[in-house]
Amino acid sequence: MNVFRLLGDVSHLVAIIILFLKIFRSKSCAGISGKSQVLFALVFTTRYLDLFTSFISIYNTVMKVVFLVLSYATVYLIYLRFRSSYDSESDTFRVEFLLVPVAGLSFLENYDFTPIEILWTFSIYLESVAILPQLFMITKTGEAESITTHYLFFLGLYRALYLANWVWRYHTEGFFDQIAVVSGVVQTIFYCDFFYLYVTKVLKGNSKLTLP
């Protein structure tokens, strides 16, 4: 565990909590892509199956359980509890265009042809693109509430910090996880355009992110 990894995990947790509290407190999921949230729940489910097969640390187990619970709780808020506020007409990204190639690729390029490894690989690939329905929705409506942009900022920052963690681990431990690193780079690239808008617009005091 190094500082980049720890800050990355904290950033990831902050992002998920921001989103959950935003929906819970405002009793509305307006502007949030339910599809992205379902994909993230699927990411955690397929990645954390090792909760049943290997114990790494208390920290690892607790974080995995927290991520799983919060991701399903968020999906529950969007599709059941506050369903009437869900903007399904703007959430029109075709997720099968992500799921099919990601599933195919995880069968082709993995560390071991076993169910748990393939599902882990699937989760890594899927995570890198899971935010696309949300970004697509913002592009479509042309705006996002600032709280939603804070969520996206921390979610993007998390993987960027993991990149620093992988550079650190490569130099200190010789650790190199090719699948995670390549996917992590792809994932971070998707956020770059958003990071630029976040810094130039939201942090300058605009109450909303409006696209030019």
């Binding site: 090792d50 790494i56 640390s57 560390y111 650790f175 995670a180």
Partner: peptide, 10 residues
């Protein structure tokens, strides 16, 4: 090493 098993990252 290449790859990671068991996975210690989240």
């Amino acid at each position: 090493h290449f790859g990671s098993c068991p996975k210690d990252e989240l």
